Amino acid sequence: MSPVSYPLPPMAAVSTGELPVGEKWVYEPKFDGFRCLAHAVAGRARLHSRQLRSLTRYFPEIVAALAELGEDVVLDGELVVWQQGRLDFAALQERLQPSTAGAGRLAIAKPAAYVVFDLLARQGTDLRPLPWTERRGRLEGLLGARLPHGLVLMPTAADPAVGRLWMREHTASGIEGVVAKRVDQPYRAGARAWRKVKTRLTAEAVVGGVLGTLEEPEALIVGRYGAHGRLRVAGRTTPLPAAARAHLRDVLTAPAGDHPWPGVIPSARFGQRPSEPVAYVQVAPSVVVELEVDTAFEQDRWRHPARFMRSRPDLHPEEITQASSQ
């Protein structure tokens, strides 16, 4: 039996604007996936999410790969699905099927990989008190000797230039940013002691609605034009600062005729789990805004709220299409 009480709250990262640098830091790419803790003992494996919900039956191919290791281990890592040259978060979400038979079919059609970045226990020894560099060495020894199909060792680099390269050149493949870890740090369950830097991009979108009122807009609902000339919902912004609210109340107007969107919008369109539809105030789709967004863009929408930067009166709404570069 492992001495680690499983499942345990995973160690987490706090967001920061810049990569920390120095000889005590190492860097890992932040993949667009599900955080996953894994426990393999006596040839059986269990998987749990960051919120400690069981993921075991949704990913039978990963359970089999962990059992194939032939050792009692507790691992930390990221579940991902790779499709058409990039990490596909939407396909990963589809793996959460309610039926065991459906999970088995999707394991074949859309197989996942488990990208392992930490070894918390092995063969009855609790490794969490060890510094990162020793745990990493033991993880490389474990997976270097036997790497079943479906398990992947997380890349790591000591050079911050490599971390910046991941952020700058690999966003198209689904890398969201970089996680920085101290080499002398033990694994502290539940602590937010790593550093996370997300890649930030700029993009344009058309304002189609607001949360709040036209006189006091609290956040924007934005869209882009599709291939058939229809304005499709592409996301929402974070709460607007006071200066942005004052500016936007002067440029946003009520629609003069029919609006391209329904009166309420499914929450899934904003990357949220299905819940109550989002009610909003429609506005004339005549204002283009520039946004700061992250790389989580799929199915023609941003999964996370964007940050309003400024309006773009120099751009016409119909120029802003789903094919527009981020």
Score class of each variant (00 low, 15 high):
residue 21 V to W: 13
residue 308 F to A: 05
residue 18 E to F: 15
residue 218 E to W: 07
residue 53 R to N: 11
residue 189 A to I: 02
residue 179 V to W: 03
residue 295 T to Q: 13
residue 167 M to I: 10
residue 61 E to F: 06
residue 221 I to C: 00
residue 123 Q to A: 04
residue 281 V to S: 03
residue 118 D to S: 06
residue 318 E to H: 13
residue 296 A to F: 14
residue 29 P to S: 10
residue 14 V to W: 12
residue 27 Y to D: 10
residue 110 K to H: 05
residue 263 G to H: 07
residue 218 E to A: 06
residue 182 R to H: 12
residue 5 S to A: 08
residue 302 W to F: 13
residue 174 G to S: 11
residue 320 I to R: 00
residue 79 L to Y: 04
residue 158 A to D: 15
residue 66 L to N: 02
residue 98 P to H: 04
residue 213 T to N: 06
residue 215 E to A: 05
residue 282 Q to Y: 00
residue 259 H to G: 05
residue 49 S to C: 09
residue 44 R to P: 02
residue 180 A to T: 06
residue 39 H to R: 13
residue 282 Q to R: 04
residue 312 R to F: 04
residue 44 R to Y: 05
residue 76 D to S: 13
residue 71 E to G: 06
residue 196 K to W: 13
residue 49 S to P: 09
residue 126 D to Q: 01
residue 307 R to C: 05
residue 196 K to G: 07
residue 253 T to Y: 04
residue 41 V to K: 05
residue 191 A to Q: 10
residue 127 L to D: 00
residue 15 S to I: 07
residue 324 S to A: 12
residue 249 R to K: 09
residue 250 D to K: 05
residue 290 E to L: 00
residue 311 S to L: 01
residue 68 E to D: 14
residue 190 G to Q: 08
residue 201 L to P: 05
residue 16 T to M: 11
residue 274 P to M: 09
residue 161 A to M: 07
residue 225 Y to P: 10
residue 294 D to C: 11
residue 86 R to K: 14
residue 72 D to I: 05
residue 239 P to A: 14
residue 297 F to I: 05
residue 244 A to K: 01
residue 44 R to N: 11
residue 159 D to E: 14
residue 69 L to N: 01
residue 292 E to G: 01
residue 107 A to L: 04
residue 71 E to F: 02
residue 249 R to C: 04
residue 204 E to P: 01
residue 20 P to N: 14
residue 60 P to C: 07
residue 92 L to S: 02
residue 21 V to Y: 08
residue 54 S to V: 06
residue 205 A to L: 03
residue 90 A to F: 10
residue 73 V to K: 02
residue 93 Q to V: 12
residue 278 V to P: 09
residue 98 P to A: 09
